[in-house]
Amino acid sequence: MHSTEIHTYLHRFFTENNCEILHENEHYLTVQLTIDMDKRIMNRPFYWRYIESVNEIPNPAQLTLITNMQQLQNGMKGEVIHLGSPRLHQLFRLTKEMGQYVKMYERIADTNERRILTPWVGVNYKVSFTSHQTKEILYSVGINLMTGTVVKEFQETIGMRDLSEQSSEQVFHLPYIITPIRALDRLDTVITQVIEGEDLTWVEEAEKRWRKDQAVLDYFYEGQEPKPECYEMEKQAMEERFKPRITVDVVNGGIFYLK
């Protein structure tokens, strides 16, 4: 992420959370936190407990975030934000936490259109391949709750449509034939199949390295019975290091009513 992308991100994040941007140019911004946001990111529970117990007027903090230090005159005080800075990652975590579940409707503005929307469940999965190394893949899939049709790259598809959190007026929403919970199970199966189609040579590679290290260790303790504690410990460490694992995490997902 470049500094301009980070700047755009910060601006959007605070605006969406009702924090007023007091002043900014393209290299920095100063933001007035809301009480809620202060509690979430400023890490000062004692202040808030005190204020609330004595009914004092709360004074949530202002933050100046600098996204491009080189471009600013000296004297500007604030937190320098870049990819890897703790503050940015705190905000990333918060964004993920606050954007896990949505319900959205496609807008129908044209009066001549058919005023019927079909329900979909869309889920974004992050799949991690882990052994002594890692790789992650993002899959976005959606399933039509009427027909059971599965669509890949679902997020990209809805990105092109005009969606809203409120339904347009006088629109008929088709009822589910497949329940959302059943749909999730179906998507789980789909993801498993997709994973099986990925290049899985890394599993073999990890196991190859594992076997090699195990052989060296066994050789070291050859003839010693029972094996000492440090043998078992090293064996355990080896398993943690090399054992191939695949984790499927849901980034976010929701119900989508689409034309």
Partner: peptide, 16 residues
């Protein structure tokens, strides 16, 4: 339900 903009941002961050 959550905010739709944050939903999309979350996806973008994960992707990036």
């Amino acid at each position: 339900w959550n905010n739709a903009v944050l939903y999309n941002m979350s996806y973008e961050i994960t992707k990036n």
